[in-house]
Design a protein around this nucleic acid. Sequence first.
DNA 1: GTGTAAATAT
DNA 2: CATATTTACA
Length: 527
Amino acid sequence: MWRMVVLCASFSKIWGLRNDVKPAMAGSADGFVVWKDFPRGLKILLLDKDAPSAVETKSKLEEMDYVVSLYHNEEDALEAISKEAESFHVAIVEVTTSDNCGSFRFLEMAKDIPTIVISDVHCLSTMMKCIALGAAEFLQKPVSEDKLRNIWQHVVQKAFNAGGNELSKSLKPIKDTVVSMLQKQSETDEHKIKEKESEKDDKYGCEKTMENDRFSAPSTPQLEQGGRFPTNGEFQEITHCSIAKELPQPGKHSSSVSKSVGNTCDNSVSIANNKDVLPSKAEAEEEVNSIDGSKTDECSAVKERFLPSHFHSVDDLQKNRLSYSDGARNNRKKMKVDWTPELHRQFVQVVEQLGIDQAIPSKIVELMKVEGLTRHNVASHLQKYRMHRRHVLPKDEDRRWQADKDPTQRGYIPRPILAYPPYHTDCGAPTNQIYPFWVHPNYHTHGVGQAGYTRWHPPPQSWPWKTYPVVHADAWGCPVFVTQYGQYPMSSPLQRSLMYSDFDTSGDSNEMFQESYDLHQVKTPHH
DNA sequence: GTGTAAATAT
DNA sequence: CATATTTACA
């Protein structure tokens, strides 16, 4: 709910500021077609039989820089949308008590265009009928100027709701525009957050933003009720992610939604569709080939920027699988696993679960349940991880790595040394043991223009991969850090500093990792 | 299948 | 150029 308000405020702000520009499509620096000074030039089909009110509405809309085509009967309107469906972004139809059949028909016919019903009718069933027939909103007359002004919201919603495939030509630019704007906005937000880091409450900034908006806060119920967004995903992703910086989402996605892995290749940034990728040498990586991406029409840039983790698409997120870049697909190049902090965290969790001595690649892969992640990938990562451990942990642990290598012992025997009850991934309940986490400091500055290979860049000198405790909600009463999206909380600079305040960043640049925590002890932050 | 060292890619 | 990741091999 709140995030929705924030989001819309952001839109309004950007668009409001650019109102002096001519309506035009233009290629942005990112290569996206953007609609300059949206929503100016948005094409509205107005169907209103009542001439005087129609003209009034039309002129109001035109004052707001909308382009209005007025129709006085539904036949013409229907003909218009059937002939030139692409030439309207949104429709406003009037429903009267006397004759509403036509309008209903219009609603039925014009599914592709977000349609707002305006009416004198106060009958609930009529309203419901309209909504049920697909109306984006039912507005009682007289329609306030704010409502009219914010008509664009329905277009944006439609643009994101329609899904990449059926996205009409008229909606596509809208979507790209929004994507582009959100990118810019997010950059701005990052700066703002830094500036306001000292100011305790984030909401303050949002409200302030809204006040200054040329376009007022969202008036449409649809947009105010964030929950009403369909599960199509993109919009939710954006809202979720853009806000995630400020408001952690404890347990929102709990164990039911598992993580996916970002698998990237070259410089390209895009969505997965990896069906035809065959790693030249590693034929054993069959898992890779099972990946079939979808929704190639998705706005990849927004994902790159707004998906904090390695999700390239909602689909991937839902299916818990690796997603690969276009480059991987097109160039048939070898892919690298993007060991995002999140993925690594999962890895570590499984390793801990198995017990460090029994953590062998095959079992880790099995337990991680990440589609597309191969044993090789894990083995490699494990090697690194072990090196890390070896380096960090004195000798005690090191011996254990070596000593417990007996292959016959490799079962799911929990390590007694951990002194914590074993748990299984399928129960989704983390124990109160801590998970070492290699933290990539620049992880949150996804370089869009940079090589798609890594989305974070290691700091120049050292690897300040640290550990941080992921605590059980029961243990700490602080479920924030338990979620699989454990890195979200860390996204906030504030949170991060809180979490890391205890962890030294000592300047030993030779240290690949900094193990600040004894793995065998639960440290209580309250002491 | 594993663990490590060497090769490679970024 | 460093090093994370992949690849080769025992």
